[in-house]
Amino acid sequence: MSKVIMIYPERCTGCNMCVLACAFTREGEARPSASRVHVYNWEREQFSVPMLCQQCDDAPCVAVCPTGAMHRPDGTIVVEYDVNKCIRCRMCVQACPFGNASYDMVTNKILKCDTCAGAPECVAVCPNHALEYVDVTVSTRARKKSFAKKFKDAFQEVA
């Protein structure tokens, strides 16, 4: 597997269809808090940013996980989550610098994007191509990292 979900905030209109798609197809109901992708809206600026796991190369959630529940299978770039190995210590939630791993009390598990095993529903429903599922090439990865850095900087600034 060598594809990742790219975020294009400048195309996002804030409709939250990605959020609904994730929650509905993965957890069976339209419950935004059960989504692995979240859209943040700045109403004064009328700007929206979808946020979801960036599948970090050097992933803090994997590094910090004591049981191997958060893991990267050999040869893939997606960090996967094994609910059976998870002890709900939520260290991954603490460790992720983007807040892209969260704990869902309703289902008692960690929510983190796994790209729907290569067919991400959020990408499929996005009416504006603000999320795209693309090959990881040198250029897309550079682009991804530059965006990730922007988000990181922005969040560090407000934190």
Binding site: T13, C15, M17, F47, P127
Partner: peptide, 17 residues
């Protein structure tokens, strides 16, 4: 126009920023 905007679950996006 800065960008089109959409309400919750909108795939039409007539909103105008």
């Amino acid at each position: 126009l800065l960008r089109p905007r959409g309400c919750h679950s909108c795939i039409i996006e007539c909103g105008r920023a």
